[in-house]
Write a protein that binds this DNA or RNA. Structure first.
Length: 422
RNA sequence: GGAGGGGUGGCCGAGUGGUUGAAGGCGACGGUCUUGAAAAUCGUUGUAGGGAAACCUACCGUGAGUUCGAAUCUCACCCCCUCCGCCA
């Protein structure tokens, strides 16, 4: 959420950034109108409340002296009724204003390339040699089926489309990747956490999934709960409504969790294979930092994610998302895209974002500077480190051999206990 | 699921319906003392909105109600703790 005052004082700038994102800027005009109305009514209500408080004090004094206060009491009663009336209108305006505010996206950082959609994302760098095969490389789902390590058919029986059963060395590879990544991330100073994967509404609002993106979430009714689409939700909300002290910062967390996504509106997209599942595993990196460091922290978080791919020997490229492709809550995002030989293209495997104070303002995550009065919002960041399923795909496809077996990357051998999956 | 207890400032903890935004303590910050530190002592110290400022307003788990006036009374809900039941 943006600061209401910032929008009022910089409405042109905010409208510009909405246009760059491809959003309808009408919401800003609407917000300014409501906010204007709300503020003048608030002043009116506060004046009335002051009047009421003063009368109450007078009544109290009169009563202490044992005199009759019925004139004043009647007067106060009238004021109170008027307050009640105006407060109702005020509450209505406050709700409208808040709803609009929750639906305005973050402002892109100046370094973010301007563009309309993913075709205008800018490649920053590439790493790794693309594998050369003297045979036609197979899809990961064919490899998985042949090695009997992935079972899509039976998964659809027990749950439906977009689910998979990992079996044997496939299940072990999934687990090995989780452990490898957590071990690597914790060695870099990220604290491992294992949070709830079901969260309440306030948490979803805190990180920005709600109210705008309800159709992307799996819900549990009675009581109202949501399945997390990413560990970002649980982990960022760890510090919701807290005032941290400066010396606590920065805070780095890493978490493995399953993630759940409806994938509504993605019919026909990646229908085969593990690329787009309703349930998938992911290891996440989350940072809480001081505002002045957040863009440096984004660079180092991205490098930490890149390092995982490098250690696994998977070729990838890094792109900077353009304004039109940038997520709702992010001010800047780097996507890591891993090379998939069967598709002959790079596919997203990690998304690293700086949310600046957008999430922390929603979630009330603040800090106090040493020796300074008042509080400031922290900046939050997160990135996949990495998406497990897609990493597994990349390993199967990049490390496949002519006979259908798959070589285990060196760093995973201690976790897997074998050199080759066959 | 049943029975009971409790949610107050950064933390602990008091609070009779009327200068209680809230005693007291801890912590933090500043001063005095000291060569320096500790101890002692004095002072300052919640968050947010509005205002150029004086200052005003709101906030004692959340929401509604009673009242001229609610941390304090009523109701509903949420959360935490203890015991019993059930359960991986």
């Amino acid at each position: 959420m943006l600061d209401a005052r910032f929008i009022i004082e910089n409405s042109e700038k905010v409208i510009q950034s909405l246009l760059q994102r491809g959003y309808d800027p009408g919401i800003i005009k609407e917000f300014l109108g409501i906010e204007d109305e709300r503020r003048s009514l608030l002043i009116e209500v506060e004046r009335l409340r002051q009047q009421r408080n003063e009368l109450s004090e007078i009544i109290s004094k009169i009563k202490k002296e044992g005199r009759d206060a019925s004139t004043e009491t009647q007067k106060a009663k009238n004021v109170s009724e008027l307050i009640k009336e105006k407060e109702e209108k005020l509450k209505d305006l406050e709700e409208k204003s808040k709803t609009l505010l929750l639906n305005i996206p973050n402002t892109p950082h100046e370094s973010v390339p301007v563009g309309k959609d993913e075709t205008e994302n800018v490649e920053i760098r590439r790493w790794g040699e693309l594998p050369v095969f003297d045979f036609e490389p197979m899809n990961h789902w064919d490899i998985g089926e042949m090695l009997e390590i992935i079972d899509f058919e039976r998964a659809s029986k027990i749950a439906g489309a977009r689910f998979a059963i990992m079996k044997g060395m496939g299940a072990k590879l999934e687990r090995s990747l989780i452990n490898f990544m957590l071990d690597l991330n914790t060695s870099r100073g990220y604290k491992e956490v294992f949070p709830p994967i079901i969260v309440n509404r306030d948490s979803m609002i805190g990180t920005g999934q709600l109210p705008k993106f309800a159709n992307e979430l799996f819900t549990i009714l009675d009581p109202e709960f949501y399945l997390i689409p990413t560990a970002e939700v649980s982990v960022t909300n760890i510090h919701r409504n807290e005032i941290l002290s400066e010396k606590d910062l920065p805070i780095y967390y890493t978490a493995y969790t399953p993630c759940f996504r409806r994938e509504a509106g993605s019919y026909g997209k990646d229908v085969r294979g593990l690329i787009r599942q309703h349930q998938f595993n992911k290891v996440e990196l989350v940072k809480f930092v001081k505002p002045e460091n957040s863009y440096d922290e984004l660079e180092s978080l991205t490098r930490d994610a890149e390092d995982i791919l490098q250690k696994l020997g998977l070729p990838y490229r890094l792109v900077s998302l353009c304004t039109g492709d940038l997520g709702f809550a992010a001010s800047k995002t780097y996507d890591l895209e891993v090379w998939l030989p069967a598709q002959q293209r790079y596919r997203e495997i990690s998304s690293c974002s700086n949310f600046t104070d957008f999430q922390s303002r929603r979630a009330g995550i603040r800090f106090r500077r040493e020796g300074k009065k008042g509080t400031e919002f922290v900046h939050t960041l997160n990135g996949s480190g990495l998406a497990i399923g897609r990493t597994l795909i990349a390993i199967l496809e990049n490390y496949q051999q002519k006979d259908g077996s798959v070589i285990v990357p060196d760093v995973l051998k201690p976790y897997m206990g074998v050199n080759v999956i066959r």
